[in-house]
Nucleic acid binder design. Structure first.
Length: 905
DNA sequence: ATCCTCCCCTAC
DNA sequence: TAAGGTAGGGGAGGAT
C-alpha cells in the first residue's frame, strides 16, 4: 500500500505510571470466577449437535430456575440454532431465561433482560429471532428497557416479521459479537492479516516448489529474439498496486474512473444531528490535541468543524490527491478540499482476490519474492531477465499488462540494484508506470530525493530532520554520521547515512519467521463494569491464542497494552467510539511455561491488568501480544485423539487440569527463582549444585545473542555448521525433530487406563508414572531411600538415574577437550541441532574410542519428555562447563535447567 | 557489559 | 456516527 498515511496518533506522550501491587484483599474475585466459569461453559456450545440455523447468533442465555422446556432442552436448542448457553450468568450473557423468579434473584441479576422460554421456542418456530421484549417475564430495568409498543408479530411465515422500530444501542466492545464485527470492518486489520498471510504463503510456495515456473516457461516459448542481453548485476523489482483499495472498488463502479474517489466507511463528509454536547466534546478534544502536537506539525483536525465526518480515508484516487487529499485523512476535511469527492465502500473480498491474483502471477515466474503487504513486494528478477533475455523495460511492460488483465487493477514497478533503489524507482513510476533507476544515475538521482521518501523516515524522524534544516538526501549527505547518530540514534543514523547515497545492504528476505502475535482493539472500548472489561479481555485472550495456534506456535511472554483516556481528555471522544487522546501503558510477563491455552492467557492478562490498575471506565484500547515464540509441541497424539473423541465436558475438565498443573508448576519455578529445584540426595552434591548454580547465575545464561556467525573457515567445526544449516531445509530431519509435549503426571493418572498406557508407552514413562510400580521400588532399593511419595517432576534426577547417566563412564579429561574445543571456538554459536551434535560427538567419540556421548542426547530426549515440560527440537545448549560438571539445557529460554554433576571429577 | 522491560517509531 | 491493526526495529534506563 502506498504509504500516504498521515495519521497522527493521539497518544502522543505516555506517562510513566506507578505500578501498584495487586491487592488480593480487594476482590473482584467473584467477577473473575464468573467469567472463567462462563468461558468453560462456552465451550459446550454447539458440540455434537447439528447446526440447524443461526437464529440465535449473538444470543447467550442463562437459564434460571425451572423452565418449560427444561434447561437441557434449551441448551440443545441454543446449540442447534447458533446461540450460546451459559451455565452461569456472566457479563456476556444477553438474556436470562426463566419462567418464575423470586424477587431476591431479580435484585442480583442487574439489567440483563429476563425472558420467558417461549421466546426461544417461538423464534425457532418462526425461523427468525423474535423481539425478546415481547416475552419479558418481568421488567427489571427501567432505563435500559425501552417502553415501546411493539408491532404484533403475525403468525404467518410468508410475511416479513416486523422488527422493533428502535435500533439496538451503540455497539461497544461489551457486546458479544463486537470483536468479530470490528475485525470484519477494519481495514487495518485486513492489511495486517493479509500481509502476514502472503509472507507465510511465499515461504510455503518456496518449500513446495518443484522448480517449474509456468509463467516463465510461457515467456521463454514466446521469446523470438536470441540476442541475450547479459545482465551482470542483480536487478530488484519493486511492485506496488496503485491506490489499491480504490482500484479494487472501482471495478464495480467503472463509471467513477478518472474522478476523485475515496474509500471510507462513511458516505457523507458532513454529519447531521450533532448534539451540542458532542460538539463541545469535539472542540475540547481538538484543542487538547493541538496542544499535545509537537511544535511545527500541523494538526490533523485542522480545518475540521464540529460537523465533519471523522471517518478515515483508507485510499484515494490520484484525481483526489490532486486536491490535496491524502490517505488517512478524515473524510470531513477531504470533502472540504474537494466537494465533488465520491466515496466508495470497501470491497474486502475484492481486495483479497486481487492480491491473491497478484501473488499468483508473480509466483509463476519466480519465488524469489519478499512479500511486503497484500499489494506490494520485492522480487529478485535477475534470473528471469537472464533466462528470457528481456530488457527491464520489456519485462516490466509484460508483467504489468498481465496483472492489469487479470485483476483490472493498475500497478507500478520500479527497478534498481537494491531494494531502496527499486522502491524509489516505483515512487517515480507511479501511477501506472515503470522506471528503472540505473546504478550510473544513482548519485545525481539521490541528491533530489526528499528525506520523507526514505524508508524509516516517518513523522517524528522527519520532524527532527527538518529541525536540523535537512529536507533532501543531498542535505543529509553533508551531515556527519556522528551528528546524525546523536540526533536520531545509532541505527537510524547509520541507515539514513547509507540510504541518502542510495546504498542499501539489506538483502531480500524470502523466508519470514514470525516473532510475535498480537490482537489489539483501540476502537469501541467503553466498559460500564469491570466484568465487561474482563469479559473482553477473555475474548481477546481466545482471539490471540487462536491466532498463535493457527500458525502452530506457542509463546512464553505476554504483554498487555492499554490505552487509557488522558486525564484532561473529555469522556466522550470526538470520533464515534474512537480512543481519543490517551496515555499508552504496557506490562509484560515472561513465563517458564508456554502459554498453551486461552485460559492461561486470560489469567495472566488479568494479573497484568491489575498491575497497571487503570480505571476500567477510562479504558479506550486493549491489546494482547505474545512474544518469545517457539514451535508448538503437539500434544501427544493419543491424548489429543482422546480429547477429541471424549465428550466435551470431560475434555474441558482435562484441559482445566492441564491448565492447573501448568500454573502449579509455574509457581514452583517462581518460588525457586527461575530454576527447577533438583532435590539432592547427598550434601556434597547439594553444595556442588549450588556452586554451579551460582556460576550460572553470574554468567549470562540467556545467550540469545550468540548466533552463528557464518564463518567459512575450513575445519570440522565449520563443516558441522554447514551440515546443520542444510539440515534445516531438509524435511526429513525436520520430521525427525518432531516435537512432543509432556503432560502432567497427575493428569495422566486420571486418564482412562488404556489411554494412559498408550501415552506412557509413547513417552517411555512407565517408571515415572506408576506410583508404586516395580521399577520404582527397585529404584528406591538401589538408592537406599524410602519414600511413599509419588515421583514429582522436580525430583526426577534421582540416584538411580544418575547412575545410569552415560557421562559417568567418562573421565573429565576425556570430555573436557571435546567441549573446550567448542567453547573456545569463535564460530561456536552455542546452539546446536540435536541430531547433528549427537553425530558430531559420535565422530569425535569414535576417534577417541568413546562411545557414550551420543547416548547422552538420547537420554536427554527421553528424560526431558518425562518432565512436565516441553522439549525443544531445535537445539541443545551448553550453558556452562566447570570442573564440577556441565550445565546444559534445551531451547532458547529458561525452559529447564539440569546440572550434570555426574561427570564431575 | 549485557540483559530485559517499556516504551516509541515505522510500514502497510 | 465508525470500525484508530499488527509486526518489527530499536532506544532509554534499570537490573544483574
Amino acid at each position: 500500500m502506498e504509504n500516504e498515511d498521515h495519521k497522527e496518533p493521539e497518544r502522543i506522550k505516555s506517562k510513566k505510571r506507578r505500578e501498584f501491587d495487586r491487592d488480593d484483599g480487594f476482590g473482584d474475585w467473584g467477577g473473575y470466577m464468573a467469567a472463567k466459569r462462563a468461558k468453560l461453559l462456552d465451550q459446550f456450545k454447539g458440540s455434537e449437535i447439528p447446526r440447524l440455523s443461526n437464529i440465535f447468533e449473538g444470543v447467550a442465555i442463562h437459564v434460571n430456575g425451572l423452565t418449560r422446556p427444561p434447561i437441557d432442552e434449551l441448551k440443545n436448542l441454543m446449540a442447534a440454532h447458533g446461540g450460546v448457553f451459559h451455565m452461569y450468568q456472566v457479563s456476556s450473557t444477553t438474556h436470562i431465561i426463566a419462567s418464575n423468579l423470586p424477587n431476591v434473584k431479580i435484585k442480583h441479576l442487574g439489567t440483563t433482560p429476563i425472558v420467558k422460554p417461549s421466546w426461544i421456542t417461538e423464534s425457532i418456530n418462526y425461523g427468525k429471532l423474535l423481539d425478546y421484549r415481547r416475552y419479558l417475564l418481568y421488567t427489571n430495568q427501567s432505563k435500559t428497557q425501552p417502553k415501546i409498543d411493539f408491532p404484533i408479530i403475525e403468525k404467518n411465515n410468508n410475511q416479513e416479521v416486523a422488527e422493533p422500530t428502535n435500533k439496538a444501542a451503540t455497539k461497544t466492545a461489551s457486546d458479544p459479537n463486537f470483536l468479530e464485527e470490528f475485525y470484519n470492518n477494519s481495514r487495518l486489520h485486513l492489511i495486517s492479516t493479509l500481509g502476514a498471510e502472503f509472507k507465510h504463503l511465499v515461504g510455503q510456495m518456496r518449500e513446495k516448489s518443484d522448480g517449474i515456473f509456468v509463467g516463465k516457461q510461457k515467456l521463454l516459448a514466446l521469446k523470438t529474439n536470441s540476442n541475450l542481453l547479459l545482465i551482470q548485476n542483480t536487478v530488484i523489482m519493486h511492485i506496488d498496486m496503485d491506490c489499491f483499495f480504490v482500484s479494487v472498488s472501482l471495478r464495480k463502479r467503472p463509471d467513477l474512473k478518472g474522478k476523485p474517489v475515496a474509500i471510507t466507511h462513511a458516505r457523507n463528509g458532513q454529519l447531521t444531528n450533532v448534539k451540542p454536547d458532542q460538539k463541545a466534546n469535539r472542540e475540547q478534544e481538538f484543542s487538547l490535541y493541538s496542544e499535545r502536537l509537537p511544535i511545527g506539525v500541523t494538526s490533523r483536525v485542522d480545518k475540521i468543524d464540529t460537523n465533519s465526518s471523522l471517518s478515515e480515508i483508507a485510499s484515494c484516487s490520484y484525481e483526489a490527491r490532486q486536491c490535496g487529499i491524502k490517505n488517512g485523512m478524515f473524510l470531513g476535511q477531504a470533502v472540504k478540499l474537494c466537494p465533488e469527492l465520491k466515496t466508495l465502500p470497501y470491497d474486502f473480498e475484492g481486495i483479497k482476490s486481487v492480491s491473491h491474483s497478484l501473488y499468483e502471477i508473480i509466483a509463476s515466474y519466480t519465488l524469489d519474492i519478499e512479500a511486503v503487504s497484500c499489494d506490494e513486494m520485492y522480487v529478485d528478477v535477475t534470473n528471469i531477465l537472464k533466462e528470457t533475455g528481456l530488457s527491464v523495460e520489456e519485462w516490466a511492460t509484460y508483467i504489468r499488462n498481465e496483472i492489469m488483465n487479470a485483476t483490472q487493477c493498475p500497478c507500478s514497478t520500479g527497478f534498481g540494484a537494491n531494494r531502496l533503489q527499486a522502491r524509489l524507482a516505483t515512487k517515480k513510476a507511479k501511477p501506472a508506470g515503470q522506471y528503472y533507476l540505473k546504478s550510473d544515475d544513482i548519485e545525481s538521482y539521490m541528491v533530489e530525493i526528499k528525506l520523507s521518501d526514505l524508508p524509516g523516515v516517518g513523522r517524528a524522524t522527519l520532524g527532527k530532520l527538518q529541525k536540523m534544516g535537512l529536507n533532501t538526501c543531498g542535505d543529509l549527505q553533508l551531515v556527519s554520521l556522528k551528528t546524525l547518530q546523536t540526533e536520531l540514534g545509532q541505527k537510524l543514523g547509520e541507515n539514513l547515512k547509507e540510504q541518502c547515497v542510495g546504498i542499501d545492504n539489506r538483502p531480500l528476505n524470502f523466508h519470514h519467521e514470525r516473532k510475535s502475535v498480537s490482537a489489539e482493539v483501540n476502537y469501541g472500548i467503553r466498559f460500564k463494569t469491570i466484568e465487561e472489561c474482563y469479559n473482553f479481555l477473555q475474548n481477546l485472550s481466545v482471539e490471540v491464542f487462536n491466532r498463535m495456534n493457527d500458525i502452530n506456535m506457542r509463546a512464553r511472554c505476554l504483554t498487555l497494552k492499554l490505552l487509557v483516556r488522558a486525564s484532561e481528555a473529555p469522556m466522550e471522544t470526538a470520533k464515534f467510539l474512537g480512543h481519543g487522546i490517551c496515555d499508552s501503558l504496557s506490562k509484560s510477563t515472561t513465563s517458564n511455561i508456554v502459554f498453551n491455552n486461552p485460559q492461561i492467557i486470560f489469567k495472566e492478562s488479568k494479573i497484568l491488568y491489575e498491575k497497571l490498575n487503570p480505571l476500567f471506565s477510562d479504558l479506550r484500547g486493549v491489546g494482547l501480544q505474545l512474544t518469545k515464540l517457539e514451535k508448538n509441541a503437539p500434544i501427544n497424539s493419543m491424548l489429543s485423539k482422546f480429547l477429541k473423541q471424549s465428550n466435551s465436558k470431560e475434555s474441558v475438565q482435562i484441559e482445566e487440569k492441564l491448565n492447573i498443573s501448568n500454573i502449579k508448576q509455574k509457581n514452583i519455578k517462581q518460588s525457586n527463582s527461575k530454576y527447577i529445584q533438583i532435590e539432592e540426595k547427598e550434601d556434597t552434591q547439594t553444595s556442588i549444585i549450588s556452586n554451579i548454580k551460582q556460576k550460572i547465575v553470574s554468567k549470562n545464561i540467556n545467550g540469545s545473542k550468540l548466533k552463528n556467525k557464518n564463518n567459512n573457515n575450513s575445519g570440522s567445526i565449520s563443516n558441522y555448521f554447514e551440515k546443520t544449516k542444510s539440515a534445516e531445509n531438509n524435511p526429513k530431519s525436520k520430521q525427525n525433530r518432531q516435537l512432543h509435549q509432556q503432560i502432567d503426571m497427575d493428569v495422566l493418572n486420571e486418564l482412562p487406563e488404556d489411554i494412559r498406557k498408550e501415552i506412557m508407552r509413547e513417552y517411555n514413562l512407565q517408571e515415572a508414572v506408576k506410583p508404586e510400580g516395580k521399577k520404582r521400588k527397585s529404584q528406591k532399593q538401589k538408592c537406599g531411600k524410602q519414600s511413599n511419595q509419588k515421583i514429582d517432576s522436580e525430583k526426577y534426577l534421582d540416584v538411580d538415574t544418575i547412575q545410569k547417566y552415560p557421562f559417568k563412564n567418562l573421565t573429565w579429561d576425556q570430555i573436557k577437550p571435546i567441549i573446550k574445543k567448542w567453547m573456545e571456538s569463535d564460530e561456536n554459536p552455542y546452539e546446536f541441532d540435536i541430531e547433528m551434535i549427537a553425530e558430531h560427538f559420535k565422530q569425535l567419540a569414535i576417534d577417541r574410542k568413546i562411545e557414550v556421548l551420543p547416548k547422552m542426547f538420547s537420554y536427554l530426549h527421553r528424560n526431558f519428555s518425562a518432565l512436565n515440560c516441553i522439549w525443544h527440537e531445535a537445539y541443545f545448549k551448553i550453558v556452562n562447563i566447570t570442573q564440577e560438571g556441565m550445565v546444559a539445557r534445551y531451547g532458547g529460554t529458561l525452559l529447564v535447567q539440569r546440572q550434570f554433576e555426574c561427570c564431575k571429577m
